[in-house]
Design a protein around this nucleic acid. Structure first.
Lengths: 349, 349
DNA sequence: AACGAACGCGCAAACGATTGCGATTCTTTA
DNA sequence: TAAAGAATCGCAATCGTTTGCGCGTTCGTT
C-alpha cells in the first residue's frame, strides 16, 4: 500500500546529491565524507525515513521472513512453540508468517506452496496427522529452501529437526505408574502416521520390559485422532473388560482427559482405582479434578531452538549458496510433572 | 532467498519474445495473439513458473499482507480469532503476519512500527492490557493505513471495530444468577484500561438494578490482570467477609477458575454454596469440576468479520485512494453457556 | 612541478514484473 | 491501389534500493 513514504530519492533531491550517496551514507560506507553522512542522517531522522523492505527484499532476493506450518494454533503446545519462534525471529530481524494445516494433508500442501510463493527465506514445519506422503516437502526441499522440522518431524528428510525425547518421556511416565504400584497399565495410542506416536509406545513398552511386566495387547487402544471423545470411548472399552486396567498412560492430554471422564462416569476414583498420566502438560491439565500428571514438553524452548537453527542455516546460505548445510538434530528433554491423578501412594518425599 | 526460480524473462528468452509480451500473455491481455498465449502458458506450466510476489509488491505498492497485533496467542479466545482471520484472509489472497504484544504497551509500539515497516496493507489490532495512550496508533492511522480493531478496541479511533455485546452478555449472566436465586452476587472486575471491563461491569449493574438489588461495592473486587491467582485471592477476601456472596460473576474464565479454587479450598460447594459464572467460554471451561458456566464469545466469527471489514477497506482504498472509508462498528452477540457451576435449581426445562 | 594515491561522489545496471506508448505488420475499405 | 484501421508486439520507464565501476578533485610525495 502506498503511504507516501519518504524514499532515499527524496533525501537525495533535497540535499542535491545522488541516491547512491544517500544509500552509502546511511550505511556508513567509508567512501562518504563525514559531513555528507551527517547531513543525510539528520535529514533522514527529520523526515522519519524508513527503508522500503519490499524493495530491499527484491534487490537482495531475501525477504527476512520465515514461514511456519503447524497443525493447529489452538493447541496450547503449538501456540507456545510459536511464541518461542517469534521470540528469536524478531530479535534476529525476521518476520513470521504462520499457517495452519488443520491436520489436513491437502491444506498442508497448499500452505507450503503459498509460503514458497511468498519467497520466505526458510520454513519451520510440524506435519499434520494425515501426512503420510512427502512429495510436497521434497519438492520444496529440492529447490534449496532451508527447512527445520519440529515435534512432528519428517524422518527421512536430510534436514534439521528439533524433537523431544518422547521415548524417555513415555518411559519415565510408565515407570512412575509402575512405581506407584500399578500392574495393569493401559496405553492410549495416538495417530499412527506420527513418529512421536511410535516413540511414546516404545517408551511404554520398554518400561514394562524393564520390570518384566508382560505386554497385554488388549490394553493398548488406538486413538488415531487423539481427541477427548476418543480417549473416553477407548477407556469405556477398557473398563468393560473382565480385568480392567489399574492405570492409563495416554499419548496426549486430551485423550487422558477423556479417560478421566469415562472413569468418573463409571463411578471409579482417580487415582485410587485407576491412575492416569497424560503427555504434553497442557495448560488445562493442572486445572482438572484431580490435576493431571503429565509429561511436560518444553514448547517455548523448542520454538526458540527451531528458529535459531533455521536462521543459522539461512544466514550460512546467504553467505555461500554453494555450501550444503549439515543437518542437525536436537533432542530436548521432557519432564514428568507429577500431580494427583497418578499418586496412589501419596506425595513422595 | 534465491531459489533459482524461473522468471518471466526466462520464458521470454526461450520463446524469443519480450518479457512484456509474456506478462500480457499470462494475464490474457487482448493485444496478444492466441498462438503466443498458448505457447507462453504451456511453457509457464512446463517450467512451473510462479510470479515473484516481492517484485509485484514493489511495483504495485501493495504487499497483500495484513498485520495482526494481539495481546497473547496462548489465549484460547485469541487463537480462535486468528483462525477466523486466516480463514478469510487466505481465501482472499492475503498473507497474515501475527505479532504478540504480550500485554505490554512498549511491545505493542514496536510491533506496530515493525508491521508498518513491512508495508502491510492493513492492520487488525486488539490492544494490550496496559494500553492507555494511543499516539502510536494515531501516528499510523494518520498515514492512512487501514485498521480494524477487535474485542479490545480503541474507542476514539475513527476506524472500524468488531466487538461483542459485552454489556448484554454480562447482564444475561447476572440475570441467570438472579434467576437461580442468588441474592449477593459478587463481581471480579478486569483490567481497568479496557472498555470491555467497563461494559461487563455495566451489564452486571444493570441486571441488579432491574431486580432492585442494591449494589454492594464491597462485592466488586478488582482483578487488574485477570489471572487465576488474582481471582483466587480476590475470592478468598470475599469469603472472609461477614456476609460472603452466594454467587460470583467473573470478568473472564481464568479469574472464575481462581474463584473456584478458592471456594473448593474453603470447603464450600459449587454451586450449592456459591455459584460461579465466567466470561469467554475458554476451551478448558467445560472440563473443570464442576463445568463452568460462561459467556461464549464467537472468536472465529469475530476474526472473520474483522478480516472481511479490513480487506474491504483495503480494496476500496486501492481503487480510489482519495476516498475516506466510512468506519463501521459490528457488534456480535454473546451466548450464555449454562453448565453445572451455576445451576442451583437443577437443569431447566 | 609532476605524478600517483586517496578521497568523494555519480552513473547505470540490477532485482522481477507491469504498462503507456510507439512501431511494425497484416487486413480491410474506399 | 493507396490509405486507414486493426492486430501484435517491443521499448523503456517504473517501483526503491544496492553496488561495481569510473570520473574528477585534492592531497602528499619526490
Amino acid at each position: 500500500m502506498k503511504y507516501n513514504q519518504v524514499t532515499i530519492k527524496d533525501i537525495a533531491r533535497e540535499l542535491g546529491i545522488s541516491p547512491s550517496t544517500v544509500s552509502r551514507a546511511l550505511k556508513d560506507h567509508p567512501d562518504i565524507s563525514p559531513e555528507t553522512k551527517k547531513a543525510v542522517n539528520e535529514l533522514a531522522e527529520k523526515l522519519n525515513y524508513q527503508p522500503n523492505i519490499v524493495a530491499l527484499s527484491l534487490r537482495q532476493s531475501k525477504t527476512n521472513t520465515i514461514g511456519v506450518i503447524i497443525p493447529e494454533l489452538v493447541h496450547f503446545f503449538f501456540s507456545t512453540v510459536i511464541s518461542g519462534i517469534e521470540d528469536v525471529a524478531y530479535s534476529a530481524g525476521y518476520n513470521v508468517i504462520i499457517t495452519q494445516s488443520n491436520e489436513s494433508l491437502q491444506r498442508e500442501k497448499t500452505d507450503i506452496k503459498a509460503l514458497f510463493n511468498s519467497r520466505v527465506d526458510g520454513m519451520l514445519i510440524s506435519v499434520s496427522r494425515e501426512t503420510n506422503t512427502f512429495d510436497h516437502i521434497e519438492g520444496i526441499l529440492a529447490k534449496g529452501v532451508p527447512m527445520v522440522f519440529f515435534d512432528r518431524v519428517y524422518e527421512n528428510a536430510n534436514s534439521s529437526k528439533i524433537i523431544v525425547d518422547d521415548l524417555s518421556g513415555a518411559k519415565e511416565a510408565t515407570l512412575h505408574l509402575i512405581d506407584q504400584g500399578c500392574k495393569r497399565i493401559a496405553h492410549l495410542e495416538g495417530p499412527p502416521n506420527l513418529e512421536i506416536t511410535k516413540q511414546r509406545l516404545e517408551g511404554y513398552l520398554e518400561a514394562l520390559k524393564d520390570h518384566n511386566i508382560p505386554v497385554n495387547k488388549n490394553l493398548i487402544m488406538a486413538c488415531p485422532l487423539g481427541t477427548i471423545e476418543e480417549g473416553k470411548k477407548a477407556t469405556e472399552k477398557l473398563l468393560a473388560m473382565a480385568e480392567p486396567p489399574d492405570a492409563i498412560f495416554a499419548t496426549n492430554d486430551p485423550a487422558a482427559m477423556g479417560a478421566m471422564q469415562a472413569i468418573k462416569e463409571a463411578g471409579l476414583k482417580i487415582p485410587k482405582d485407576i491412575a492416569v498420566v497424560g503427555f504434553s502438560n497442557w495448560f488445562f491439565s493442572a486445572l482438572l479434578d484431580p490435576p493431571l500428571t503429565s509429561v511436560d514438553q518444553p514448547g517455548f524452548e523448542m520454538g526458540q531452538e527451531a528458529a535459531k537453527l533455521l536462521i543459522r542455516q539461512i544466514e550460512m546460505k546467504t553467505k555461500n549458496s554453494d555450501i550444503d548445510v549439515q543437518p542437525e538434530t536436537k533432542v530436548l528433554k521432557t519432564r514428568l510433572v507429577v500431580r494427583d491423578s497418578s499418586l496412589k501412594k501419596g506425595k513422595k518425599k
